[in-house]
Every structure is written in structure tokens, then in C-alpha cells.
Design a protein around this nucleic acid. Structure first.
Lengths: 220, 220
DNA sequence: AAAATTTTTATGGTTGACCTTATTATTCCA
DNA sequence: TGGAATAATAAGGTCAACCATAAAAATTTT
């Protein structure tokens, strides 16, 4: 099916796009931001990925994963999240560092390895950050959840997953106990996109809106 | 200690040098051959590695790992072989494919990961190919063994390790049962660097001299 | 509709690790 | 010792993925 070896860069772009595709068209600028490259570089890359049939780019509108691109991205994310499970459950790596390490390993993982790893782990369904693990054929659907940033004042919610990837962000969330499985209540929303104040486990915690977007919850 | 991130290429060169250093000066040409690059490329790389203080190159004589280079190489090999153990023992990957997969993973492995993996595996002392795993500080010494190619006619030997890395070579050795732990006897040595004929497990097996160099044995 | 902002394209530059094709230097061997 | 083989250097090229700067195009805001 997929004979061409994808570069690390390609994998990072596809992964980022899939993770951002709750909006099903992604602005190239946002993508560049998330990946820490310039908009020019991201545009160049979109051209390359377009030529490979992995993304479709409508100028001035945004980019989309093609069917093929989505399948490839699913596989990349699968590998990544399986490694997260291994690192967390078996190697006892710090929760906040797991993503980062798994990301490197992901790029170095052949399909046979992926499936052997899945088997070894007992085919887990979610990673330690609560995100679902795509199926072996690369298929996946987004979690049925909304970002914490959209929760109304006073409402309580159950944290399903944390979609952040940066280690320092994950570390912060861990310290504040905003983790999959926890319940939080929004006790204050400051004006001007100010921070949310959350009550979690008996303590009040401030959380900036940008960070709150990475926390996926279900209202309870 | 080691703050600079080494490139994948650098790691491959250092690893190859360490694995070839039963002779303690390595001809750049041999190195190029083993790595599948041209002599020119290998020379260029030796200059770069020399500048980084990892190798010392005496023109027309050969290259040597420096103390620092040897330590780094030891760490690279440690990572590699620990992954080999994991892939073979836990993921049940084919013996002949283990090296290849472990090699990719090695490049993506941070020190914290390495030690967590060693712990998980119970600090194994040898990889599935029988090679010793360097210590956490990067130190290692070569196996006390000689290549099968140097065994005299009629002599019996115990296979300690297989130093080959190419999957097809490993596959061949596996099929012929020339594996760590086995005993072999040299029953014929053809002239003109012709193949050895070995008796192993009741069967006669032909083995070319170049391949026999990769089989490390102890006379019994 | 004009102004401001965001996107895209164009052009040219860098880096690392390769490559080829000479040319020069050294070592080995008969 | 003289030629063959091997090793090293020089010069110039490629490729992917970045970068910066600048100009053009489209969209959004006012």
C-alpha cells in the first residue's frame, strides 16, 4: 500500500494536521505556528505534500488531508500513541515526557514493529494522554468531546484527553492535576480571553484559554 | 557530558568503527565499504568527526576512535543492543530482522530512555546475536573470541556471537543454524579463499570466508 | 471602497550528507 | 626501484528542509 518512505518532516506535518482537524480545514498559518516553522516553509511543504497526494490545498482557504493523507496520518498517530503506552506503562517514564520520547521513536518504527508492539501491549485503545489510538488500517475518528475553553462558567466537566504535545505544557497540566479521568468545574472566566479558573480536586487552578483548548472534556 | 546531538550518520560511523576495532586502527576504505558509501564520503566524514574530537585520523594509516569517540560509540551500541533484546524477547521479532529494526530505534533514543529500557529488560548482558552490551557509562571490551575464518581444519568451536548486521546475512546464518550457542566443526577449507565447510548439528554447511569473519567463536 | 492583515509566490541562501570525476600523495610489492 | 594499488584532496553537484526578504494576491476589517 505505502511503499514510499515518508520523511520525518512529512510525518510531523501530517500528524499535526490530523490533530488539528476538528476543524476540517486547517489554516496553513496555524499549522506553521504549531510546528514552529515559518509560513513560507509550511507553504512549500504543502506544495510537496500536495504533489504526493497527501493533502489538498485550496489557496487562501486552507489545507485538508486527502483520504490517503488521513490514512497515513492515522498510522503515524497509531505508532506514536502505542509507544506512549509502552513508555508510560512499562518503562515508567514521566507522564509529561512520554509524548516527546514517543515522537522520536515513532519516526523509526516499521509497520511490522507497530503491530508487534500493539500485540505486546494488548491492543490498547487510548494513550496515556487519553487520546484514542487509530486502528491498524489507519482509521480513526475524533474523540466526542469539546475543548475546555468552550465550557460555560459554573459548569462541571470530565477530562477525557489532553491534546497538548509540548513537554512544558504537559508538565504544567500534570502539576495542576488537569489529567484524563479528573473532573473540573469552571469557577471563573476572566474577561479579555483571560484565564479560566478551575476547581479541580478541591483546589483552584488558573488556566489560560490557549492551554484550555488542548484539554478535551465532556460536560457532566 | 554529551550535550551535542549526534546525527544519525555520525552514530553509524562510530558504531561501525567500534565494531571493526578488533584491529585497533581501521582503514577508511573498509569503513566506507561496510557503510555502503564511497571512500570520498568516508574521508569527508572522518574530517568532520576529527574536528569534533571523536576520531583521530592518521592519513594513509587509518582511523581510530578517541577516548571520547569510544565512549560515545559504546553508548550507541548499548542502545542498539538493548533494543535488540526488547524486540526479540518481548515483541517476538524474527531473529534476523532484529538488528535492522533496533538500528532505527537506536537513533531515536534519549539517555533516560536507554536506562529505563535496561531496567525493564533486567540489565541483560548480551544481545540476541550474542554480543556484549556496553555498560551505562559507555565502556565495553571486545568479546574474547576469534573469527570463524581463522579456525583450522578439523577444529571444533563454540559460536559466541554473530557480528553481522545485514538482514540477508543474518537470515542465511539463521537458516544454516550458525547461531550463538551452537558448536561447529570445520571439515573442509577450500583453496583460494574458498568457502569453509562446517559441520553443524549433523549437517554440512558451506560458508564463505567473508561471512565467516562475522562469526565469533571460541575453540573447544 | 480603502486600509490592514493574512496568504501565497518568488528568489536566493544555508546545512549535512551524500555523489562524481579528476588529481595528487603514499604505501605496498615484485 | 618502479609501477600498481590504495588513500587522500580538490572541485563541483544534488537533495530535502529549512531560513530571510520582498512582492503580489486575496481576504477581512473598518
Amino acid at each position: 500500500m505505502n511503499l514510499k518512505p515518508l520523511s520525518e518532516s512529512t510525518e510531523m506535518y501530517l500528524k499535526a494536521m490530523a490533530e488539528m482537524s476538528y476543524q476540517d480545514v486547517v489554516a496553513v498559518g496555524r499549522l506553521a505556528e504549531r510546528l514552529g516553522v515559518t509560513a513560507v516553509s509550511a507553504n512549500e511543504m504543502m506544495r510537496r505534500l500536495g504533489e504526493q497526494g497527501l493533502v489538498s490545498h485550496t489557496p487562501y482557504k486552507g489545507v485538508n488531508l486527502t483520504k490517503k493523507g488521513r490514512e497515513v496520518a492515522g498510522n503515524v498517530i497509531r505508532r506514536q500513541r502505542l509507544w506512549e503506552c509502552f513508555l508510560y506503562d512499562h518503562l515508567k517514564i514521566e507522564w509529561s515526557q512520554v509524548y516527546e520520547f514517543a515522537c522520536s521513536l515513532e519516526h523509526a518504527t516499521a509497520p511490522e514493529l507497530t503491530e508487534a508492539l500493539a500485540e505486546f501491549l494488548g491492543n490498547p485503545k487510548t494513550c496515556p494522554r487519553g487520546n484514542p489510538i487509530p486502528a491498524a488500517d489507519g482509521s480513526f475518528k475524533p474523540l466526542d468531546a469539546i475543548p475546555l475553553s468552550e465550557i460555560k462558567l459554573g459548569q462541571a466537566a470530565h477530562v477525557l484527553a489532553v491534546n497538548a504535545t509540548a513537554t512544558d505544557v504537559l508538565k504544567y497540566l500534570q502539576e495542576k492535576n488537569i489529567l484524563p479521568g479528573r473532573d473540573v468545574t469552571v469557577v471563573e472566566v476572566a474577561p479579555m480571553q483571560g484565564p479560566l479558573t478551575l476547581r479541580v480536586g478541591g483546589k483552584d487552578v488558573a488556566l489560560g484559554l490557549p492551554m484550555a483548548e488542548f484539554v478535551l472534556v465532556k460536560i457532566i
